[in-house]
Design a protein around this nucleic acid. Structure first.
Lengths: 332, 332
DNA sequence: CTGAAAGCGCTTACAG
DNA sequence: CTGAAAGCGCTTACAG
């Protein structure tokens, strides 16, 4: 491919001027010279080499994203939103999919350091991922869920505890007195907040509520298996609070398999507010995370010059649809 | 961050040796020297700069992927498989999400050329994307669906026509005599093959079969809307052949909304064989694409030294589940 | 086996 | 306003 040198030669100028033209600075170029450069560049089909540029510029204009599973709808929507926000600032998003595998997550961290991404957005598989490589390289990192205070990362997240309390309260208000919590697989800050909020709502009720906590992978298959099991027991839960939409899909699948109507026999709530939650049968009541806004905000933070780390709370919203029963006259 | 120079200084050697150690070649290094280098590198927390490496090495060890919508399950599974195959060969996958927007697709093409990806895998929004930037940069490209002979790209795809014929035949064998084809939004090589195969099966039947073709985006929402419309008409189709699982999800949603049982009132087939197709209500009969194998194969091709372009056909499989009715005694 | 040096393709002070 | 040159951090012939 043509290089800046080729363009400079053809235009009868220097590579410095070629650079000035393509970057609109930092020095001015006379219109006549600029015109010659542009013409030569077009003739030679010149495309600046982003690698060489990054090497001398000192920044790669790339942001890394590490997610547990890119095929998961929530992470897909997140990646889409982050890429758009990054592109709007001239940055490219590098996506690393951990495939639910800690070893691969680690190798993405290493690869991102070697590629010198300017910053990274991460949703980790574990509660305490090894962020040292980023720290040593001076690469700022942000998480999009609750994190422990000890972690050297920024976070932008909705208040899981409050959201869990709200959704569980919704179930309680419907009169359900036996509720299962379908939580994530690990004991992470997020899972703890789901549990806390869930229990707060349950304990606030003047009547006794039976509850049970399940742990499943964030996958339809695992959640379905767990739900199939518990729903086959003699005394099955009347309702399920799920910590992700993906798990809610699995639970609803299990209900259908067993001939248990939703919400008449079993009520279900989700968490995330993915677009697909509106297309289940029946449509899912769920907690919506403002993915677009969160993505926009985290990219602005990471590409801006704010002092990091920073911890921000985004607003959530309970979207009431049909998976919990008829609308309540007076809901809180 | 520490550079090779820093490591060389501390180890009392040259940057050449540092390079030889980290790349295991192309020259040998005595165990003693290697040891000193490794120790110095560890002390300084040295991570080779992949950009600088790419610049002098001449290859970036990166492969670009452009998909219409990364949040779509099929593309998510594809990205996952491609990334795994790429990582196994020391390559990183850069994902560009077009967000169903031709302008963004174009900008990904430009960005990938500037980043000097070694090759690209593409699923284009249009039938005839502008691949010239890749061609001029000498970047090989592969598509994972049928393409027109004119295109300067490799392709690895299942035989859409045969697959469409097989799935439609399955519907015909069940006795359905009014079948809708839910095809993609554009007149692309893939859509044409869906139609051809669909019509072949219909015409091969000795009885008259009523058929209609719909075009929708590859999204649950659009397919649902189209299905809601056609299912509300006085004479509704008895079965739907959908060109993607995503559309099949939308059609099934519409059926449920209208109180039409699947498969008793309406039968549905999908296409892609995403993992989620097994979790619909009822589980979806669909055409499975061997995504993992296709991903592995395309990466092998792109990173190998085979003469390109190349056109390969991958095998498909009709997965019979419950969305078309009871099992047939003698199915073809 | 190892070192000094050129080169990959940019950007940016430094002179003029 | 523009050019010559150094520098970003690697790799790899070229000598020794």
């Amino acid at each position: 491919m043509a290089t800046a040198k080729d363009v400079a030669d053809l235009a009868g100028t220097s590579t410095a001027v070629v650079s000035y033209v393509f970057n609109n600075g930092p020095r001015n170029v006379t219109p006549a010279t600029r015109e010659k450069v542009l013409r030569a560049a077009a003739d030679l089909n010149y495309r600046p080499n982003a690698l060489a540029r990054a090497l001398s510029f000192g920044r790669t204009l790339s942001i890394g994203l590490i997610v547990p599973d890119i095929a998961n709808r929530f992470f897909g929507e997140l990646a889409r939103a982050l890429e758009e926000a990054a592109a709007a600032r001239g940055n490219i998003l590098l996506i690393g999919d951990s495939s639910l595998n800690v070893e691969r997550e680690r190798s993405h961290v290493a690869a991102f350091v070697e590629r010198r991404v300017d910053s990274v957005v991460m949703v980790s598989l574990s509660d305490d991922p090894d962020l040292a490589p980023f720290a040593k390289a001076g690469i700022p990192i942000a998480m999009l869920h609750p994190i422990d205070p000890g972690q050297q990362a920024s976070s932008i997240s909705i208040d899981y505890r409050a959201a869990a309390r709200t959704a569980t309260q919704h179930l309680v208000d419907h009169g359900y007195r036996s509720i299962a919590l379908v939580n994530g697989p690990t004991d992470a800050a997020g899972s703890r907040q789901h549990r806390d909020g869930f229990l707060q709502a349950i304990r606030a009720c003047h009547e006794t509520i039976e509850s049970i906590e399940l742990h499943t992978d964030i996958s339809r298959a695992h959640a379905a298996r767990a739900a199939l099991d518990i729903l086959s027991r003699p005394s099955r839960p009347r309702a399920f609070y799920c910590s992700t939409d993906e798990q809610a899909h699995g639970v609803m699948f299990a209900c259908h398999r067993l001939g248990l109507a939703v919400p008449d026999a079993v009520a279900v709530t989700g968490f995330d507010g993915t677009e697909h939650s509106a297309y289940t049968h029946p449509p899912l009541t769920t907690v919506r995370q403002p993915v677009i806004d969160m993505a926009e905000r985290v990219i602005a933070l990471l590409t801006g010059q704010a002092e990091l780390p920073v911890h921000e709370i985004a607003p959530f919203e309970l979207i009431v649809r049909e998976s919990c029963g008829p609308h309540l006259a007076s809901s809180t």
